[in-house]
Structures are given as C-alpha cells and as structure tokens.
Amino acid sequence: MLGGISIWQLLIVLGIIILIFGTKKLRNVGGDLGGAVKGFKKAMNEDEKGNDKSTDDPQARVSHDDEGTTYDVKAERKAEEQDERK
C-alpha cells in the first residue's frame, strides 16, 4: 500500500503536521488551495468558450503587413546620450 507506507505512519505524520502548524493555519491553506483550484477551473472554462469566438479576438484582427515600421527605443536613447555628451 502506497509504497510500503502504512495508514498508521500516515496518521503519525498528519498528527505531527497538525502539532507544528495548527488546525487554523491548515484550514486557511486548504481554503486557499480550494479557491485556487476553482479559479483555475473557471479560467479553463472561459478559455474554452473563448476559443469559439476567435473572430472577436483582438489579436485575430492584428495584421503584420508593415514590417518596415519598427521602433527601437534603445537606439533612440543611445542617440540622445551621444547628443548630450557633445
């Protein structure tokens, strides 16, 4: 059973954990974990519903036809720094 761990060993470990952390803290951790799982499931369901509306997705309407119009901020900063040094 469970790789050689008996039920009594699991109960002893659980008792030690309760003594170290306390029941209130463990209850809070359990509630936080449950909330995180619910939020994850909700996000996954919304994502699946969102895949059906691919035409309404803002990223679906973006076109990358203007490849020559890039803006390099680092190059502009370097040019400004060189102008200030002169």
Rank of each mutant, 00 (worst) to 15 (best):
K38E: 02
V37E: 03
D52I: 14
T55Y: 10
E48H: 08
N51E: 14
N28Q: 12
N28Y: 11
D57V: 00
G15C: 12
P58K: 02
K25N: 01
F21K: 07
F40C: 04
A43V: 05
G30E: 09
T23L: 07
G39R: 07
I16R: 12
V62I: 14
S63N: 04
I18A: 11
V37R: 06
D32V: 08
I17Y: 11
L33T: 02
K38R: 02
L26F: 00
I20S: 01
Q59L: 15
G34S: 06
G39L: 08
H64C: 13
S63R: 04
F40T: 11
D56Q: 09
V29P: 00
R61Q: 11
E46F: 09
G39F: 08
F21H: 08
K49D: 08
G34I: 01
I17A: 13
I17K: 10
T55P: 03
V29Q: 04
D57A: 09
K25Y: 04
G35Y: 07
G39D: 07
V13S: 09
G15D: 12
H64Q: 13
A60I: 00
I18C: 14
G39A: 08
K24M: 05
K42N: 14
F40A: 14
S54W: 12
K24V: 09
Q59R: 15
V13Q: 11
E48Q: 06
G34A: 09
I17N: 11
I20F: 10
R61I: 05
Q59D: 15
G31R: 02
K25G: 00
D65A: 11
A36Q: 11
R61P: 02
G30I: 03
H64Y: 12
H64T: 05
K41F: 02
G22T: 00
P58G: 08
L33K: 06
N51Q: 07
D56I: 03
T55E: 14
T23W: 11
F40E: 10
T23M: 06
M44N: 07
N28E: 14
L14A: 05
L33H: 01
K53W: 00
T23V: 05
S63G: 07
R27L: 03
G30W: 07
K25A: 02
D47A: 14
S54E: 14
L26N: 01
I16F: 06
S63W: 02
L33W: 03
F21V: 01
I12L: 15
I18D: 12
K41C: 10
D65P: 03
I18P: 09
K49G: 05
V62C: 10
V13R: 07
F21P: 01
N45I: 08
G50P: 00
L19A: 02
G30F: 12
A36D: 14
Q59C: 14
F40M: 10
R61T: 03
L26E: 01
V29D: 03
T55K: 15
P58M: 01
K49L: 10
G39K: 04
S63M: 08
F21W: 09
G35V: 05
L33Y: 01
I17F: 04
V62L: 15
H64G: 06
G35W: 05
